[in-house]
Design a protein around this nucleic acid. Sequence first.
RNA 1: GGCCCUAUCGUCUAAUGGUUAGGACACCAGGUUUUCAUCCUGGCAAUCAGGGUUCGAUUCCCUGUAGGGUCACCA
Length: 493
Amino acid sequence: MPKPKNNIRTRFAPSPTGYLHIGGLRTALYSYLLAKKNKGVFILRLEDTDQERLVPGAAEKLVEALNNFGLTPDEGLVMSNDKISSRGKYGPYIQSEKIAYYQKIAQQLVTENKAYYCFCSATRIGELRSKQRADKQIPKYDGFCRNIEPSEASKRLKMGHKAVIRYKALPDTKVTFEDKIYGQITVKSDDLDDFVILKSDGFPTYHLANVIDDHDMKITQVIRGEEWLPSTPKHVLLYQALNYQMPEFVHLPLLLNPDRSKLSKRQGDVAAEDFLTKGYLPQALLNYVALLGWNPGTEQEIFSLSELIESFSLEKINKSGAIFDYQKLDWFNAEYIRKILTGQGKEYKNLVALSATYLPQNKDKAEAVLKLFGSRINKLSELTELSKFLWQLPKYEASKLIFKKSTAQNTKLGLQLAYDALNSASAKQWKNEGLNKLLQDIVAKNNLTSGDVFWPIRFALSGLDKSPSPVELLEFLGKEESLKRISLGIGKM
RNA sequence: GGCCCUAUCGUCUAAUGGUUAGGACACCAGGUUUUCAUCCUGGCAAUCAGGGUUCGAUUCCCUGUAGGGUCACCA
């Protein structure tokens, strides 16, 4: 029996910042898609090796955020019974729980003379760097501790001197690796620093922990943002030094601000959760973000998650960064809202429930409000403002009741006739078709135009230049409230 | 500044060694409608520049230019 050729294992390995970055969402999505496409495994791991930047509850938030988008990990950090837990046999999936192991490996590299203890203080390093900068040199560690004898080093460690472990990069060699997106990349080792792999607090740096974990978790594709491309040679060096099998590197083009810089907090929202609270649907956001830097090779734009899995391929990812365009996102969101509104299933119920959160005083009316404004909004949060006039009597100038092609006389007549007709309308008639016929009849039988009847009623009901149709409003407001508003209108004439 | 990456409408993108360079968003105009939105029709708009290679280059190569990323005991 031949073994399955591609036992794909991908991972999303964020650091716990307290929120899911929109770029991270896309990285997670692509990782998820590649795994699912190949019947592989998608893993969530937490890279929390920076003790100074610990954010409480960050792991939970991350798992939840991913769940919101349907990107549930097969392995690693998962939610069960509202609590975070680990699943899988390659853990720990939280790096801070694995410190001793990283230390052991770092020390092993020292033993093998592939790394060394460095006792330089932060002050010395800082001064070195500023001097180098002043001299227009590349800031780089000068190798001061490179040749300290092992016996000397252990003596100083025993005396309690603080030290980091640095990787010993060999001079005059080249590091070459193949990136699935960017192709072959070669860097001279002289351009590489003797980089730190273990910090003086005993925690590993990203470079070390990431390489060890990806190896331990048998990751086959390292998928991450392009900002990691310059440090990948360091990782390649570590893979070689540790005799690990190299994974495939897949660096994704960056998501950009409108000014083409890396997408940042400064210039708008970057937390996926913020988009959700603003009334973007997770499906829409995911769909939009999927198409930033990747295309299906067809002209299809609307994709469900399963359709994305179906169509996804690494080959269709492009190399240049993509500006995050809110207008296009709005369009996607509007498309999803409109599409969901035509159905009646689970998605529809969900949408109604979501809408209710934007109508805190009138939650029970969410479905009707959605029906009224669904085709008029880009995001659900707009419901709050748009629906305001439904809950309070409109204020407006009498002249506004008159349609531009109409007269005061006809308007007043139209309103009055409509009032009478509506007043005697039965409950059964108080529905879209019935109401429409009723108003049409008034127009036809009294030699009036639509503008003489429909416009003033709509205006009397809404007090707005732009609103849903009078029939829709009548239906929503009900007989009593509608008649009240119309008679107030007549009173103004 | 060193290193690395990138370059098609304003934006996201498709395509090709020979095309009227396609689509979507946005924008504009028209139609439908009582208004708005939806919907329909149409329009505007791009291969960064200069050299090669070639019968022919937007596509391949080089240089330039522009933009970005990165140069931490952060990830």
